[in-house]
Each structure stands twice: as C-alpha cells, then as structure tokens.
Computed example of a mutant assay.
Amino acid sequence: MALSQNVGIPWIMCKQSNAPSPIINTCNGYYCDDFKPNNPKSPKMFTENWVGWFQKWGEKRPHRTVEDVAFAVARFFQNGGVLQNYYMYHGGTNFGQTAGGPYIMTAYDYDAPLDEYGNLNQPKWGHLKQLHAAIKSGEKFLTNASITITEKQHGDSVYVKSYKMQGIEIFNTANVEVQTNKYVKKPAGNSSLTWTWTSEPVEDTLQGVGIFNASELLEQKAITVGASDYLWYMTTVHINDTSTWKNSNLQVNTTGHVLHGYVNGQYIGTQFAVTVTNVIIEEVM
C-alpha cells in the first residue's frame, strides 16, 4: 500500500527487521554499529541515536554523557554507517494534553544538544559539533575504509580513542574540550500563579456519544480525544448486608493511570498505578 503511493523517495521502517524490499529497515537505539540491514543492497542507517530520554513526573532527569553519544556515532561510521540522526537534537515542549505517554511531563527536553528553549546544552552540543567536523574532514578516508579507530577502556565503558588519518589524531571522543553550561531557573519578577477551572460534562468527554457499556479498560486518549484528563468507569454492586462490608479492595489491572475511587458519590481514595492499582475502600456509606 505504501509503495503504491509512488511518492518518489525511499520508504524506511525503523526497528523493523522483516521490512520487505525495497523498503529499507533501519536502527534505533543507543548503539547501532553492529546493525545490519536485512537487504545487503540497503544502506546502513541509524535513524534514532537516543541522546537522552524523556522525563517522568517525580523521577530524576535522564542524562547520557556526550562522550558516549560521540562514541556511538564514531563506531557507527567506522562500521559502514551512511546516515545518522539524533533523537532528539532539539528538545521541545508538549503543551496541554499532548504528552507522549504515561507520566511523561510537559517538558520534552530529552537532554538534547539544544534544550527545550533552544539554548546550547554544553558540553553535548560543542563536543558533537567537533565530532561532525572531524568526520567531515576525514570523509575521503572514511569512505575508502582507510581511517582507523582505536579503543581505550574507560571505567565501565569502552570509548573510541581517536580517529587517525595518516597517523594523526583528529578527534578523541573521550576528551571533552568545550565548556560546560549550568542553567539556574528562577521565578520571573514578582508574578504569581493564577488558577482556573472548568466543568467537564460526561457527554463532552466521550466523543459526544454519552454513556456506553464496556467490559474492559479503554484506551483513554482515543475515548476522550484530549477533551479531558478523566475517563469515568461506573458500575453497580448490590449489597444486602452493609454491616459486614468493610476494608474491601477495589483492584484495577492497569498501567500508567491514576485511579480516583468513589462509592455512592463519595470520594474514598487515590492510587498511582505501576502494574496494579489498588484503592482501599474502608467503608461503604
């Protein structure tokens, strides 16, 4: 179906080892030097070199050293790579309800060479710039397989020691010679935060179809279409003798959700999901 569109440029499929010819399968990850396309006539492409990772609420800011990123790039081109793309090279912001997944915060900085606001993330930006210049200067040697890379054990990681052209070291991935920037976030002036709230009628959060029945947990974004952060699940349980109904568990098998529990219209607890969500119902009123 894709090929029938005749778009005039090659199609690629990342992390798809069984991509049918002439579609080009590519590699995503931290290291792709050992990657081999499933078609020997396809170019070796590194479509996502993960320079960091996304950040979740309440967790430590992810960080990948620039030495390791540069090492991955150098090794990739040493082993026949022809195209390498950073993910992300420029961080960004997911406004509103557009975060990429469970618990991912609004900032999508990704520890990228250019941060969320476009600032240089040093030394990552500068060190990679020097690496690019070194690769460019050695492109004739590199494409003729006459460039060598030696390795040096460094702690728990192996870093490329140097690109060498005719015995001259032109770059060392483990030797960072650029400045390091540190940014401090401060409040802007004496401005204070203001809060607003809005009502969310149930019929407006369910694609306009109102209430419907389901026997399973639903994909929330597909149901609410970004109109709400909440999706209501309601059921009825008839209990004849409420005097024996105490300290009961409401268990929902889900990941990446926050569950607020209500019984007879009264709020009884909240739990954050990891693999299983349990909300303790102390007593039914």
Score class of each variant (00 low, 15 high):
Pro40Ala: 04
Asn94Ser: 09
Phe272Thr: 08
Trp195His: 13
Asn39Glu: 13
Ile12Trp: 15
Thr235Cys: 12
Met45Asn: 02
Thr194Arg: 07
Arg75Lys: 07
Ser228Ile: 00
Lys41Ser: 07
Pro187Lys: 10
Gly101Trp: 02
Leu259Val: 11
Leu217Glu: 09
Asn247Pro: 02
Asp156Thr: 14
Gln55Ile: 10
Glu116Ala: 12
Ser146Met: 10
Thr106Tyr: 02
Met105Gln: 07
Asn213Ala: 15
Gly189Leu: 12
Gly189Met: 08
Arg61Asp: 12
Lys185Leu: 12
Val176Phe: 11
Asn190Cys: 05
Ala2Met: 14
Val274Met: 01
Leu217Cys: 07
Gln122Asn: 10
Val209Ile: 15
Gln130Ala: 10
Lys129Gln: 14
Ser21Arg: 09
Lys56Gly: 10
Val202Arg: 01
Gly261Thr: 13
Ser17Ala: 13
Leu231Lys: 00
Trp195Ser: 13
Ser191Cys: 00
Pro62Trp: 07
Val160Ile: 08
Gly265Val: 11
Phe95His: 01
Thr244Tyr: 09
Gly138Lys: 03
Asn190Ile: 13
Trp125Val: 04
Val237Gln: 13
Lys60Trp: 12
Gly256Cys: 01
Leu250Gly: 03
Tyr163Phe: 14
Gln166Asp: 15
Asp229Pro: 02
Glu282Pro: 01
Ser42Cys: 05
Asp156Leu: 11
Cys14Ile: 15
Val209Gly: 04
Pro37Met: 06
Gly155Glu: 08
Gln251Asp: 10
Leu120Met: 14
Phe272Tyr: 06
Ala72Asp: 05
Thr254Ala: 07
Pro102Cys: 01
Leu131Arg: 03
Glu139Pro: 02
Arg64Ser: 02
Thr236Glu: 14
His127Gln: 00
Tyr110Trp: 01
Glu203Gly: 02
Tyr87Gly: 05
Trp57Gly: 08
Lys186Val: 13
Asp115Asn: 12
Val209Ser: 12
Lys221Ser: 11
Leu250His: 05
Asn18Gly: 05
Thr98Lys: 09
Lys246Leu: 08
Asp204Ala: 15
Thr242Leu: 12
Pro22Leu: 08
Met234Gln: 14
Thr198Gly: 03
Glu139Asn: 07
Phe35His: 05
Asn190Ser: 07
Tyr87Arg: 02
Val209Ala: 13
Thr255Cys: 00
Gly226Gln: 05
Asn18Tyr: 13
Tyr230Ser: 03
Asn278Glu: 12
Ile9Ala: 09
Met1Cys: 14
Asn28Val: 04
Lys140Leu: 05
Asn247Cys: 06
Cys14Gln: 10
Gln78Phe: 12
Ser192Gly: 08
Gly261Pro: 01
Asp115Thr: 05
Thr235Val: 13
Ala227His: 08
Val51Gly: 03
Pro20Tyr: 13
Ala107Phe: 00
Gly80Asp: 09
Ala74Ser: 09
Trp125Asn: 10
Gly210Trp: 09
Val73Arg: 06
Glu139His: 09
Ser4Phe: 15
Leu250Cys: 13
Gly58Leu: 03
Gly58Pro: 01
Phe76Leu: 09
Ile149Arg: 03
Ala227Trp: 03
Thr93Ala: 07
Ser42Tyr: 07
Asp241Trp: 06
Glu116Lys: 03
Ser248Tyr: 05
Ser243Asn: 00
Asn39Leu: 03
Pro187Tyr: 04
Gln179Trp: 06
Met234Thr: 15
Val258Ser: 04
Leu231Ser: 05
Leu131Pro: 01
